[in-house]
Design a protein around this nucleic acid. Structure first.
Lengths: 157, 157
DNA sequence: CGGTTCTCTTGACTGAGTCAAGACAACGAC
DNA sequence: GTCGTTGTCTTGACTCAGTCAAGAGAACCG
């Protein structure tokens, strides 16, 4: 890590506080963590941390460009520190695990819709649904966070 | 409509009921409707219809392949009858309006991730975020359903 | 028409996330 | 260092989408 959390927070115009350092620390260790996971893990560093504080911290981090929120359908929001690079996500239908994927074809042009219906598009979000290596071989764990759903009509890979 | 709702329901192994006909009717008139909209509109045809019944009907329709559920981040789930064709969605960040887009490049191969990290991918879901024609020219209406969010780090179009 | 089975209604409940008020802590100035 | 301002966190009540469960009711089969 070249720049410290302090530097990044200050650069974004944010004060450096204990809750923020704790949340950043947790996110660095666990990419794609949900709020509950972050609260639990961050309490090791800051026991009195409240869930609402974490919501506030994450909102500030996202607004400041230090973190990114991802919201897979049917699961609570996840947060990650990888920002500014065109990467997408693989999500396990069974256990909810998330993995990063670099942009499908390298060029964003691939994802320009043919007909935008008058919309001004500023972002293309891609989610690949499937089964992670662990769930592929064993019976789905009951810790599943993404409800089983039938074909959602998307692109067959 | 070549085949009737009745035919489609029966083909899917579902009984033909009043709530189901009402929901299908509403979805045919309003693509991308949320549960609340469906309940309200369907009550014109079936006044005693309960929200829970609609959840049940929609679950049955999705499981039977008659409908598809889409869940834009930060908004309640939407449902549509277009199934089985590789189409994606444009979502307005301001008012939550949704429009259909045909598959970006025509070929699903475009959306095969380069490195699947061991995942078995069965679907690629694409959401284009932007502003709809109406919100582009006027101040955002307070009926906005998608919270304003900063850059989410996705592909810049 | 009658029985079986699926579906709907009613109502209580969960879980993620939001809102608001006041206490507290970080930063800048002196 | 300390003081004041301002942004941030804590506490607690609340909203909203969606789920669960039990019993009433309707659709389909014979």
């Amino acid at each position: 890590m070249e720049t410290t959390w302090e530097d990044q927070l200050r650069t974004a115009g944010l004060r450096v506080t204990r809750p923020r350092r704790a949340v950043l620390q947790v996110l660095a260790e666990r990419p794609h963590a949900d709020v509950d996971t972050i609260v639990t893990a961050a309490r090791v560093l800051h026991p009195s941390l409240s869930p609402q504080a974490v919501y506030g911290v994450l909102e500030a981090l996202v607004a400041g460009g230090l973190a990114r929120r991802i919201e897979p359908a049917g699961a609570p929001a996840l947060f990650e520190l990888r920002v500014g690079d065109n990467h997408h996500h693989l999500v396990c239908r069974s256990c909810g695990a998330v993995a990063d994927v670099d942009c499908a074809v390298g060029a964003a042009g691939c994802l320009t819709p043919s007909d935008t219906a008058g919309f001004v598009v500023d972002e293309a979000e891609v989610v690949f649904w499937g089964l992670c290596p662990a769930c592929r071989v064993q019976t789905p764990p009951e810790t599943a966070r993404v409800p089983e759903h039938h074909d959602r009509g998307g692109v067959r890979a």
